[in-house]
Amino acid sequence: MIKAQVLDEAALERALTRISHEILERNGGAAALVFVGLRTRGVTLAQRLAERIAAIDGTKVPVGTLDITLYRDDLGLKTDQPVVRGTDIPFPIKGKTVILVDDVLFTGRSIRAALDALIDLGRPKMIQLAVLIDRGHRELPIRPDYVGKNLPTSRRESVAVRLKEHDGEDRVVIEAPEEG
């Protein structure tokens, strides 16, 4: 049940555009940049960022897909079984600046797993983190470099990022917890 809308389509677009400019500004251009999105919506967001950078800067920044299932710290705890969909990063990351992209930053554990996975794949020069929504409640010392929107939430709520490519629309909503 939707409790509130956080970003509408236009706001989402603007956030992505702003992040793209910030990335270019911080890194002095797009050379030596690569995007790695966390499955599934992180990948889509990374592709949209790459499109914008190509439009602004003319540089084609490669986008890779990261599946963190094998690196999760909660495999032995969850009662549902996560599905392994596979990692596909068909370019070297050694010496590059990797922009990790995810839709929602929450406890930080997914990003921790993503960092371990990336480092197993090679030695990047630097890793930066871009997220569309930061909803707080961190359990690990992880902080994002680029944020679309900061969103204070209660732990029991859930934040859903809906994207045209997956959900038929572009918006971000807060869903109320399921009634018991």
Binding site: T69, L70, Y71, L75, D88, A117, D120, L121
Partner: peptide, 12 residues
Amino acid sequence: EIGGREIKKVPT
């Protein structure tokens, strides 16, 4: 793809 990596290991 794990077999194609340089470091053929995941911590799972």
